[in-house]
């Protein structure tokens, strides 16, 4: 649900069309006013925070910056963040493909309800997302006593972090694929089958190439959220330095200890990740748009 605004969609360039047309052209003072107000708002709420991260990170010089990044706790946080993303993204990738295949290629009852359920994690507060796993796997939770007997730690340990990350990124890939595959229909798959292709061949040779950009788009967004998740992970992590801290949690700890430059140094890595995400996302949109433009020629 909440990811709806980031739905994979190539945006055409329409601005010149509107300004060339006397019926849709606005007077110049309206133009300047709207652009002026819009950009001020954009600068105050988006641009300044982004710049601030990097300025604060280098406030005490490059030396402090880099030493904050190679500190063992920071490195361990980076490792854990990469691990959580490396597991939760493939989980949700497989899920997204399975769900989209079932929903887009077949008719069955309760389909719309299923789609709503898939969107559910987007509407749950991250804090609640963390809490639910505490209720299931925590010491006082459903499986708490059993887990303790068998000496398995999930909450305040790495498995809990992976679970919470998987929950908050659950719908990302599925929701990119479902509408696209529904729009594409079954014709090409049926054609492949009628030409003798097996189900597996059909999937690899026909379905996957048709959805590759949306798939990549979903993976990019899923990964960004997986690496940046804070609330849910914060609940299940236990904040054990060097063990169960991800990068965003490391930022919090450093910040609360008034090590601002170090906190912003780690934060700058995450901001860089966000920028790379946006660049990749824009590139994929552009490629997909290019792709569609040819298809519609």
């Amino acid at each position: 649900m909440v990811g709806v605004a980031a739905t994979f969609d190539a945006r055409p360039d329409t601005a010149s069309k509107f300004q060339a047309n006397p019926a849709t052209r606005d007077s110049s003072w309206v133009r300047y006013l709207i652009i002026g107000v819009g950009l001020t708002y954009f600068a105050l709420f988006l641009l300044l925070p982004l710049i601030a991260v990097f300025v604060e990170a280098f406030r005490k010089g490059a030396g402090v910056y880099f030493s904050a990044l190679v500190e063992p706790d920071a490195l361990s946080a980076i490792r854990l963040t990469l691990l959580a993303a490396a597991l939760s993204v493939p989980f949700n990738l497989i899920f997204g493909l399975a769900a989209a295949w079932a929903i887009a290629k077949f008719q069955f009852r309760g389909k719309n309800f299923l789609i709503t359920l898939i969107d559910l994690p987007f509407s749950v507060s991250p804090v609640v997302a963390g809490l639910i796993y505490v209720l299931v796997f925590g010491l006082q939770g459903w499986f708490g006593p059993w887990l303790r007997e068998h000496d398995i730690k999930i909450i305040f340990a790495v498995p809990g972090i992976i679970l919470a990350t998987t929950f908050v990124t659950f719908p990302f890939i599925a929701r990119e694929l479902i509408p696209l595959m529904q729009a594409q229909g079954r014709d090409e798959e049926e054609a492949a089958i009628s030409l003798g292709a097996s189900g597996f061949q059909t999937f690899w040779r026909v379905t996957i190439p048709n959805i590759k950009w949306a798939l990549l788009y979903g993976i990019i967004l899923c990964n960004a959220r997986a690496m940046g998740e804070f609330g849910a992970v914060s609940v299940v992590s236990g904040h054990i330095r060097g063990e169960t801290n991800t990068m965003p949690l490391q930022v919090e700890i450093l910040y609360n200890e008034y090590q601002f430059a170090a906190a912003f140094a780690v934060a700058s890595l995450l901001a860089l990740l966000a920028l790379v995400t946006l660049v990749l996302k824009t590139y994929v949109e552009w490629r997909a748009h290019h792709h569609n433009a040819i298809a519609e020629e």
């Binding site: 054609a191 190439p209 298809a295």
Partner: peptide, 15 residues
């Protein structure tokens, strides 16, 4: 072993 020609052709667009 039937040859089926689809109404909207269903050509594989990426090939």
């Amino acid at each position: 072993r039937v040859g089926f020609v689809f109404q909207h052709y269903a050509l594989f667009r990426h090939m």
